[in-house]
């Protein structure tokens, strides 16, 4: 149910402070998204590829993610050049190809791929739980970060309870058809899941109150910037700023 964090040989990126990675991912993505010149976007993609290489992500994981994005972009490429109004058109095999459409498509593709690679390099190398903590340290509202962490904790419990119920249905001979009985049974299953998660939430809250919970969360782990982090900051940010200057 929950995506397992990829286990890879510790590379530079696995050892960076997660706060640095989160902020860098944000900066990089925003920088890419606000660019409009293809030349700069090309450099952006170059940086993203470099980051990905540094992050040493498992190639298969990366490939499947890139594939689904680029299939979508490919589809976009079939429509944009023919549907965007433009001042200039290319004549090719009797077709009017909009230059502006072509340009937009190239811009989208470069941006989307750069952001995907950048986010993967920065965030896929961090355990999702650590990421939750880092968000909390960056003063993202506690309600949101706790929601994330509690979801991570209980999504498996809920999934297990869904599997239990659906297996119990199967062993009593239930098979999904498109008839009233099936729809009603699935409805009951989902209803029961809702009821169970509600009860679960009440129990968890009771257990927390028993341990003195009164609305405040404390953080056990603190992060510290290492030498490695400082070197990364010293290289990454000046370059990004320099590129901003060019833009």
């Amino acid at each position: 149910m929950l995506p397992e964090s990829p286990t890879i040989a510790p590379a530079l990126f696995q050892q960076l402070d997660p706060r640095v990675k989160l902020v860098s991912a944000l900066f990089f993505s925003v920088w890419v998204v606000v660019q409009h010149r293809l030349f700069l976007l090309g450099i952006g993609l170059g940086i993203a590829i470099l980051l990905t290489l540094l992050a040493r992500l498992p190639p298969r994981l990366l490939f499947t993610r890139l594939l689904s994005l680029n299939l979508f972009l490919g589809l976009l490429g079939l429509f944009l050049p023919f549907t965007t109004p433009s001042e200039h058109y290319l004549q090719f095999a009797g077709l009017n190809i909009s230059l502006k459409g072509l340009y937009l498509w190239a811009e989208f593709s470069l941006k989307a791929n750069s952001v995907l690679l950048g986010l993967n390099a920065f965030l896929a190398t961090t355990d999702i739980i650590v990421l939750g903590h880092a968000l909390e340290h960056l003063h993202v509202p506690v309600k949101l970060t706790r929601l994330l962490l509690l979801t991570l904790r209980y999504i498996n419990v809920l999934h297990a309870s869904y599997q239990q119920l659906s297996r119990a249905m199967q062993v009593r001979g239930f098979r999904l058809h498109s008839d009233r009985h099936s729809y009603r049974s699935i409805g009951n299953l989902l209803g029961m899941l809702l009821v169970r998660s509600f009860c679960r939430a009440q129990q968890i809250e009771a257990a927390m109150r028993c341990r003195g919970y009164r609305g405040h969360f404390y953080l056990l782990h603190h992060f510290t910037l290492s030498f490695r982090d400082k070197v990364f900051i010293a290289i990454f940010y000046p370059n990004l700023l320099l590129l901003m200057g060019i833009a």
Binding site: G132, Y154, V157, A207, M208, C210, R211, Y213, H216, L220
Partner: peptide, 28 residues
């Protein structure tokens, strides 16, 4: 008072063991 619930899944709500053990102590 230490209250041990029937279902440990109700009680352990933090991502890691250390955090969960720390939760009540922080509350003190």
């Amino acid at each position: 008072t230490g209250f041990l619930f029937q279902d440990p899944d109700d009680q352990l709500f933090c991502p890691t063991v250390a955090e969960d053990v720390a939760f009540g102590v922080f509350n003190q």
